[in-house]
C-alpha cells in the first residue's frame, strides 16, 4: 500500500493523510501508524491526533534542528509496515457503556424510530449491537466519533441545533454516532444517555475513551441509570 501523503498543518505540526473518506479500513491504518509512532517515541514527538482518515503529528522543532520536519517524519513513517502487522493492531480496549434509551433520556428516539420505519425496541437493539471503534476524539474534550453504525440507522442532523444537549447523551448525526461528554449545543439526534462521566479534566486519565478503543452500548433501564449515576 502507498504510505500517507504529508501536508503542512502548522509550524509545529504535520498532517499524514490516508484518504478522504470515512471507512473502517482507512481508520485502522491511522491508528496503526499512531501506535507505531507512539512506540518509536522520538524526542520531538508532542502529540498524535488521529482522525477518520488522517493523523496529526505535533512536534517540537527544537528537537529536529536544521532538518526539514517533513523528512524527519517521513523517515519515522518509512519504518512502518503497511498493512500493519498483527503486533501493530494490538487488541483494542473494549468499553461497555450503559445507556438508558428513550423517554426522558433520548428525546429523539421515538421520532427517529418512526422516521426509520423501525419499532423503538428494534432501533435500540440495532444501535447497541455493534462493536464500535473510537475513530477520533474531537468537537469537545472527550467526544468520541464512533465508527460502525448500522447504515440503516443514519439520521439527518437537526436543521437547528439544540442550544443544550445534556451530558452523556448518546446521539446519531448522519452516518455517525457519538456521545456528548458535557452539556453543550449540538445538532445530533438524541437516542439515549449514559450515566458514565466521559471526560473529567481533574482525573489522571481525563478521557474514559482513547482513540482506537472499542465501544459497545449496553441498554439499561431508568432505575439502573439512577443507581449508576448515584455511584459516579
Amino acid at each position: 500500500m502507498s504510505g500517507p501523503l504529508i501536508e503542512l498543518l502548522g509550524d509545529d505540526a504535520l498532517l499524514l493523510r490516508f484518504g478522504d473518506g470515512i471507512d473502517g479500513a482507512t481508520n485502522q491504518r491511522v491508528h496503526a501508524l499512531a501506535l507505531h509512532l507512539r512506540r518509536l517515541a522520538p524526542a520531538w514527538l508532542r502529540d498524535l491526533v488521529p482522525a477518520y482518515a488522517s493523523l496529526g503529528v505535533f512536534f517540537d522543532s527544537a528537537y529536529m534542528p536544521g532538518e526539514d520536519p517533513r523528512e524527519v517524519i517521513a523517515q519515522a513513517v518509512a519504518g512502518w509496515s503497511d498493512p500493519p502487522s498483527p503486533l501493530e493492531n494490538a487488541m483494542p480496549t473494549l468499553h461497555e457503556i450503559p445507556v438508558c434509551y428513550g423517554a426522558g433520556f433520548g428525546e429523539d428516539l421515538a421520532v427517529a424510530a418512526r422516521e426509520l420505519g423501525l419499532a423503538e425496541a428494534e432501533l435500540i437493539a440495532r444501535h447497541s449491537a455493534p462493536r464500535y471503534r473510537v475513530a477520533m476524539i474531537g468537537f469537545a474534550p472527550g467526544f468520541p466519533y464512533l465508527l460502525g453504525l448500522d447504515p440503516a440507522l443514519a439520521l439527518p442532523r437537526l436543521a437547528t441545533p439544540r442550544a443544550r444537549v445534556p451530558a452523556g447523551s448518546v446521539a446519531v448525526g448522519g452516518a455517525q454516532t457519538g456521545i456528548y461528554p458535557h452539556a453543550s449545543p449540538g445538532g445530533w439526534r438524541l437516542l439515549g444517555r449514559t450515566p458514565l462521566v466521559l471526560f473529567d479534566a481533574r482525573r489522571d486519565a481525563p478521557s474514559l475513551l482513547l482513540p482506537g478503543d472499542e465501544v459497545r452500548f449496553v441498554p439499561i433501564d431508568a432505575q439502573a441509570f439512577a443507581a449508576l449515576a448515584g455511584a459516579a
Partner: peptide
Amino acid sequence: GISEPVAVGT
C-alpha cells in the same frame, strides 16, 4: 469534508 486535525494558526 470529513473532520481532520487542525492546529493553532490553521
